[in-house]
Write a protein that binds this DNA or RNA. Sequence first.
DNA 1: CCGAGGATTGTTAGCGCTCACAATGACCCT
DNA 2: AGGGTCATTGTGAGCGCTAACAATCCTCGG
Lengths: 341, 341
Amino acid sequence: MTQPSLRPPTMADVARRAGVSHQTVSRVLGDHPNVRDGTRAKVLNAIGELGYRPNSSARALVTRRTRTLGVVASNTTLYGPGSTLFALEEAALAKGYLVSTVSLRKLTVQTLSEALDRLIEGGVDGLLTIVPQLSATAALTELPHPFPVVTVGSGIAAEIPCVTVDQHRGAHMATGHLLAAGHRTVWHVAGPEDWQDAQGRTAGWRATLEAAGIEPPEPLTGDWSPRSGYLAGQELVGRAGRELTAVFVANDQMALGVLRALREAGLGTPQDVAVVGFDDIPESEFFAPPLTTIRQDFTEVGRRSIALLLDRVEGRDSSGTPRIVIEPQLIVRTSSSPPSP
Amino acid sequence: MTQPSLRPPTMADVARRAGVSHQTVSRVLGDHPNVRDGTRAKVLNAIGELGYRPNSSARALVTRRTRTLGVVASNTTLYGPGSTLFALEEAALAKGYLVSTVSLRKLTVQTLSEALDRLIEGGVDGLLTIVPQLSATAALTELPHPFPVVTVGSGIAAEIPCVTVDQHRGAHMATGHLLAAGHRTVWHVAGPEDWQDAQGRTAGWRATLEAAGIEPPEPLTGDWSPRSGYLAGQELVGRAGRELTAVFVANDQMALGVLRALREAGLGTPQDVAVVGFDDIPESEFFAPPLTTIRQDFTEVGRRSIALLLDRVEGRDSSGTPRIVIEPQLIVRTSSSPPSP
DNA sequence: CCGAGGATTGTTAGCGCTCACAATGACCCT
DNA sequence: AGGGTCATTGTGAGCGCTAACAATCCTCGG
């Protein structure tokens, strides 16, 4: 920090000051084995004195690696995508990568495509997408071919590796739990049809009922919001009447709306109607009543996704099209206690 | 896309194919005026045929600009920070910048410092922090001096420009609203003492009561979570008894907990106790009862923050230490209807 | 005490791009 | 017709770094 130069110090400056060649400085920075301790110390010293920081662009230019990963996410204010993004970032950082994110307010093939473009243009080494809407995944196939991509939580897209929580299984747990408690049938408030997760949950619910010899009632559809859950709840009360004793709601926010609708209809939870949600958002425990739900391990999702992507980025393995599936977990709370006989 | 070469095409390849010099290609890309239409077309054509993409590292190396901004955020699963991050990203993108994010699970001077370091090392042009905890802001002063930084929503740090929503004013709106409805006093469940926002809200609440000639009762403190709100609610019921008719809770999540505690204590909202929250999370409208709260315009926060930062990054203006303050808005719902006389 | 062979350090080329400047061409005025 | 001017295009250098190779220095065994 001796001279307040205009230009930040370069590797050559460090070399000069340490009395070595710039290449030796590079070796010290790169942790090469063949550098004498004394030399290393001199270099480290000079680096400290000069306040030197390696220039990442210069390095990236020659190594052809930016050590940055791109993430496209659709609706990060939603619990699932938000948590996934957070986990991805954490995992990437742990591996020495930075993450550039583009969050989309509106997800279409068009916007997704643009986002991917900007990220690639920005020089990312690999791409992750948190894009649960199936309709948009088409954009993924248009990538310059050998570009490393992993989709997180939206596993359908053609030949792209993906990591996802087993939605079908989660729905099965929820529905099975309700059935085991003695309910004759389980109604369902689904998420938007276009969402991979919503489809999986609905399919899991349906399959579970059918396996139990029960004809699944027509599911209602919401948009993940509490409001839509509220409307669905009202609809359900009107449509099912006394038959309504158990509902599996595709996420916790909508379950909150359902709970309110039930309450307003004079129905008690769980005495009259049992409710199970999905996600285990932090608030669920404090709903009235506390909500039984399905928890997803996003940290694990993040770790596995990054590992998978880095295999490709760092050229370790890019054979096949792996699909990693992670198990969800049932969290039982008051909203699903067995009905009074 | 004619030849599936190993190396991606470079500007020189494009130039050769278009029969011009690499500099002309650069001009076309940079939208320079003095390029004949025919030439531009040839170049554009060659670019398309080759599937050429400019190399951002090479460009960054010479321009000394990466067109990437760094954001350090503390707890993005919380509504406020999460929304801020989203808004920042959107605003940056609109200005042609990418955003690299580091989300901290645990915020300390240490972790903040590391995060800033990694971001700078990664080559960002400027830095934004969403770091509401005052205790950590010290790390900001250790930056290599003329590095452009803007803090978002945590305005205390020494000479660093900042953008924030007026928490004091929001709390004043909430408290004043309750007072105007006829309540004799307003209790307060505060956020963590270390948080800038929490302090502002508490101060605003206190000032409003004092201005009305009311001695503020001792506030309770939570950690933003519904659980802590629930505990605070129970405590409040025990401590205040019949005196408890109005509560201003420092965020909506905690307000949810308070609502539950009140309900469990046999107190009706708003008949017995009126409640006002802060944030206007999407769920608030569906709480039982729907929650009166204070809404913050994060989109505006994002726009202003990015504008401020880019002024510095792009060397337009870096005089002074601006503090931009944005007005919040009171959203009245059922939870704060006037008490029955 | 010498040379083999490993350890350590230096030298030389670019990576792909933009900047500053030089060169060329087109056009107009006198 | 000649020279000045602007529009358009080309040339050369170098941003800061790493990779490959060349050069030097040791350390020993014989």
